[in-house]
Design a protein around this nucleic acid. Structure first.
Length: 511
RNA sequence: GGGGGCGUAGCUCAGGGGUAGAGCAAUUGCCUUUUAAGCAAUAGGUCGAAAGUUCGAAUCUUUCCGCCCUCACCA
């Protein structure tokens, strides 16, 4: 099949090569380039609003608009920091420069030297004195045009918005949709804020294994992989928890890790099979102190990243201003389920009525089904749910006044779990009992093996400690107003496409 | 896995049994302050894939592939 765009652009590249111009230049030759945003910010304007004379800038970027008028042309050049218009004139550009200009296409990457001026229609523009092509784009970038109507409203033409292509070819999405790039900037700023906050508090960032011989630290189906030389199965970690706590045993008092976890479960707008979690553990702390720290991180992140603690999320307005609401699990249960948590008969009856009952499951698990069904979706504004049942919290420490409940909280916002924390169980006998109970349970996702090595570590003594896990993807979703996790993951997992994908992908053979 | 929606030109979309359409983009020509630049002409499609119904299928049916939403699943 003849691909007009590819052939034409290759032809143009060859034409340049024949004239001695490398369409894939080694480097920008005409000075040190300045980011477009910096150039515009540094521009000195005279009283009449026109740039003062003699302000020459060297910039590099991608051609985003191209109006060729025969003997002169206007282009928009865009880099990561901004966009500026340039004006190339045939009599100024010289033979080589004009040859390059005439063979430019949308999406090409160029370098330019030019003096700032203001056009008749008022746009700041660089009058190009030197023009170099740095990279010829052989495929056409999607072209988005914006029209400003007389009443000031903006109409977008040709928006690049096919979700599948945006996910599969994220580089196009980032180039074309600046709001998409901004979302990932927010994500990165969020992570660096968390990192800086924890570093300043004396936390040590560590790296623990991603390949585990026994998956633990959460209840989830793991991915299985195989080490050939050792001839053994390994599991991609579902949580770093047990290794981080081994480090607390080892004498580190404040550790954290920000990295990927893998869960072999359903994919949805809130679940990507690999997701990023920040987990931290602090010796001599507890879940109350960790709740304060969580507030500091979450509220601080909102303020740092967005400049405000309020976020619009779908139809809801969320406010992360401290202090966040705290409510006991059983109180919320009574409020939204409408039954006291300890009224077992009524709870089971209601679970049966909503097809959440299974005779194989123990009472607290069934009750928690009701909690997930009736309470969690109602937790819109950020809320700490505290004091969970022990039976569904195998790694958390029991409350002194009631061993059926643990010192644990989860932070919810927009009906989504954002964080999970507890006073860490450090009694190895209690921990062994709970592990054993899990292994014996009929739950398919329960661990099949007791992590003896972890228990042995606890037996050497772990100081009382608080721990926290924060879902970075979900926190990013909330802070950016995204209702799909795929919009905050650069390359979300998608099925492999057999045959011709949406964007057309059969050009490799042409070279 | 169930239900619903979608897949047509590089991008955004229309067309719903009778030889494939528009805007932008592309090609050619004109145009040295344009900005969805303009004017004129031209080219571009296995209508996601396969099978079926039909004289005839982008259109109807079935299966498959992929994406989105939703339910289920999901510490």
């Amino acid at each position: 099949m003849f691909d007009e765009y590819f052939e034409v652009r290759l032809e143009k590249a060859n034409k340049l090569r024949e004239a001695g111009v490398n369409p894939f230049a080694l480097r920008f030759l005409h000075g040190t380039r300045i980011p477009v945003g910096d150039a515009l910010a540094n521009l000195k304007l005279a009283d009449d609003g026109a740039p003062e004379q003699g302000q020459v800038f060297a910039i590099c970027g991608r051609v985003e608009r191209l109006n060729n008028m025969g003997k002169s042309m206007f282009l928009h050049v865009s880099d990561e920091t901004g966009r500026v218009q340039i004006h190339v004139k045939k009599n100024v550009a010289g033979d080589d420069g004009w040859l390059v200009a005439e063979n430019l296409d949308y999406g090409d990457i160029i370098g330019v030297v030019g003096e700032a001026f203001r056009t008749r229609t008022g746009e700041i523009t660089l009058a190009v004195s030197k023009l170099q092509i740095l990279t010829k784009a052989l495929r056409p970038m999607p072209i988005v045009k914006k029209e400003t109507l007389e009443d000031g409203t903006e109409v977008v033409h040709g928006a690049f918005k096919d979700t599948e292509t945006r996910y599969r070819k994220r580089y196009l999405d980032l180039n074309v949709n600046k709001d998409s790039m901004e979302r990932f900037r927010v994500r990165t700023r969020l992570i660096s804020f968390i990192r800086r906050t924890l570093d300043e508090k004396g936390f040590f960032e560590v790296e623990t294994p991603m390949m585990h011989s026994i998956p633990g630290g959460a209840k989830a189906k793991p991915f299985i992989t195989k080490h050939n030389a050792l001839d053994m199965n390994l599991y991609l970690r579902i949580a770093p928890e047990l290794f981080l706590k081994r480090l607390i045993v080892g004498g580190f008092e404040k550790v954290y890790e920000i990295n990927r976890n893998f869960r072999n479960e359903g994919i949805s707008t809130r679940h990507n099979p690999e997701f990023t979690m920040m987990e931290l553990y602090e010796a001599y702390s507890d879940f109350y102190k960790i709740a304060d720290l969580t507030e500091e991180i979450v509220a601080g992140a909102a303020e740092f990243v967005l400049g405000t603690t309020t976020v619009q999320y779908g139809e809801w307005k969320l406010d992360f201003k401290r202090p966040l609401k705290r409510a006991k699990y059983t109180d919320l249960f009574r409020e939204y389920v409408g039954i006291s948590f300890d009224n077992e008969a009524a709870v089971i009856e209601k679970a049966k009525a909503h097809e959440l009952y299974s005779p194989k499951l123990e009472y607290e698990v069934i009750a928690n089904e009701l909690f997930e069904e009736f309470v969690e979706p109602r937790l819109i504004n950020p809320t700490f749910v505290t004091h969970y049942p022990t039976a569904i919290s195998p790694l958390a420490k029991r409350c002194d006044d009631n061993p059926d409940f643990v010192e644990r909280f989860e932070l919810f916002a927009a009906g989504m779990e954002l964080a999970n924390a507890f006073s860490e169980l450090n009694d190895p006998v209690d921990q062994r009992g709970r592990f054993t109970k899990q292994v014996q349970s009929k739950d398919e996702e329960a661990p099949t093996e007791v992590d003896e090595d972890y228990l042995e570590a606890l037996e050497y003594g772990m100081p009382p400690a608080g721990g926290l896990g924060v879902g970075i993807d979900r926190l990013t979703m909330v802070l950016t107003g995204c209702t799909s996790i795929r919009d905050v993951v650069l390359f979300p997992l998608l099925k492999k496409v057999e045959g011709a994908p949406a964007g057309g992908e059969t050009k490799e053979a042409k070279e």
